[in-house]
């Protein structure tokens, strides 16, 4: 069956974003909007949480907001 999703929430996709620049949880959620991935809100939250725990990115505060980032 054809999928309408044009974005996939994968560890590799998250890694690429976090190497490019530090992002908040909200920034990441914006990259993987449910209407683009076809996932539910709950699935998105659960999968993204698992991926972030596995990637264990560095953290820093920018403008009082926690940002995640990775270095290559």
């Amino acid at each position: 069956t054809p999928s309408s999703s044009d974005v996939q929430l994968t560890e590799e996709a998250v890694r690429r974003y976090l190497i490019r620049k530090p992002m908040t949880t909200k920034d990441l959620l914006k990259k993987f909007q449910t209407k683009r991935t076809g996932l539910s809100s709950e699935q998105t939250v659960n999968v993204l949480a698992q991926i972030l725990k596995r990637l264990n990115p560095e953290r820093k505060n920018i403008n009082d907001k926690m940002h995640f980032y990775l270095t290559e």
Partner: peptide, 20 residues
């Protein structure tokens, strides 16, 4: 909507509580 985004961000941060 932005309120849904806020809710999702809050849920994600709760999931990551120990980690963050």
């Amino acid at each position: 909507s932005s309120s849904e985004a806020d809710e999702m961000a809050a849920a994600l941060e709760a999931e990551l509580h120990d980690f963050m």
